[in-house]
Design a protein around this nucleic acid. Structure first.
Lengths: 151, 151
DNA sequence: CAGTATCCTGAACGATACTG
DNA sequence: CAGTATCGTTCAGGATACTG
C-alpha cells in the first residue's frame, strides 16, 4: 500500500483527493486552466522534474482529465500539447473553491489574487454550496452524510 | 525543499493545494466534517500511522483548520480531541466540489454517495461557481485570471 | 527504529530538424 | 549525409516519508 491507499475507495472525496492530492497534479490542472498546454511550459512554470511531469500528465490523460494532442509548427517536427478535456475543465469549481478558501484563510503578505471570472462577462465567480433549487448555503450550515452509517 | 515547494507561493490555489495535497490532510478534514474528533477514531477510520497522524493534526492546528481541545472522561486521564475551527469548516465547499467531481467523472462500481446536505433542511447541496449576485456559472464558462499578466 | 516505497536532482538516451 | 541543437522520456543516486 505504497502511495494512494484510498484510490478505489467507495468514497468519492477520497478518489478525488487521490488525484488532486498527488504532489503536482493540482498545479498542472491549474496551469492548464490558465491556458498552458506545452510540456516545456509546464516545466518552466512549475519547476517540476521532467520525468515526474511525464508521469503526472500520463495519469491525467488516463483519468480522462487531459488529452494529448499532436501539433506541428510549420518548420518544426511533431510535438504534443496537453489540453484539458471537458471533464478536466469541470475541475475549475474544485480549484476555485480551494483558491478562494486559501485566499481567505491562508493569507500571505504579497498575496496574489488569481481568481476565476465568467468568460462572457468578466464577472468574478466564487465557489459556493447551492441547493438544487439554486439557494446558496453557508459551509457552516452544511453537513457531510455518509451512507454507511444510518441517517 | 523536500515536500511542499509552493507553500509560500503568491498563488492561493498553490497554497491551498499544499495543505489539502498533503497525503492525509484532506481525508482527515473529511472525517472531521463527519464528526470524527478523537485520535483513535481517526486512526481506525483512515488506517494511518499514529506518528503521521500526529504530524498532520499539528499541521492542521498550526494552519488554523483544527483545534486541540482537552477533555476527560470520568475515570480516565486527560485526552485531547481535534475539532474543526470555523476556518476549517469552510473547507466543506472545497471537499464537496472535489467529491462531486469525482462522483461524476471517476466512477467506480460500488460507488458510494457520500454527499453534503443542508443541516436545517436535509436538502442536498452541491458545489457551484456563482457570481456575486448569485447567478450560477458553468465551470466550462469560467476562466482563471492571474494578476501577473495584464488585465 | 528498521524496512520499504516514493520523490527529486542530474544526466543520458532516442527521436527529430536545421546546418553545411 | 554527417554534425549539432532541442525536445520528451527514461535511468541512476541520494534524501525523505510512511508503515509496522
Amino acid at each position: 500500500m505504497p502511495k494512494t491507499s484510498h484510490a478505489t475507495s467507495g468514497c468519492a472525496i477520497a478518489r478525488g483527493l487521490d488525484l488532486l492530492g498527488e504532489r503536482w497534479t493540482g498545479m498542472i490542472v491549474r496551469d492548464a486552466l490558465r491556458g498552458i498546454d506545452r510540456f516545456a511550459d509546464f516545466v518552466a512554470e512549475l519547476g517540476i522534474a521532467q520525468d515526474v511531469l511525464t508521469k503526472r500528465l500520463n495519469a491525467l490523460v488516463a483519468a480522462g482529465v487531459m488529452e494529448r494532442i499532436p501539433y506541428q509548427e510549420d518548420g518544426s517536427r511533431m510535438r504534443y500539447r496537453y489540453a484539458l478535456t471537458p471533464t478536466g475543465r469541470q475541475l475549475a469549481t474544485a480549484l476555485a473553491s480551494i483558491g478562494d478558501w486559501a485566499a481567505a484563510h491562508l493569507p500571505v503578505d504579497g498575496g496574489s489574487t488569481s481568481h476565476f471570472v465568467e468568460a462572457a462577462t468578466g464577472q468574478r465567480v466564487r465557489a459556493a454550496l447551492v441547493t438544487d433549487d439554486g439557494r446558496i448555503v453557508a459551509p457552516v450550515d452544511a453537513q457531510l452524510v455518509v451512507p454507511s452509517a444510518g441517517s
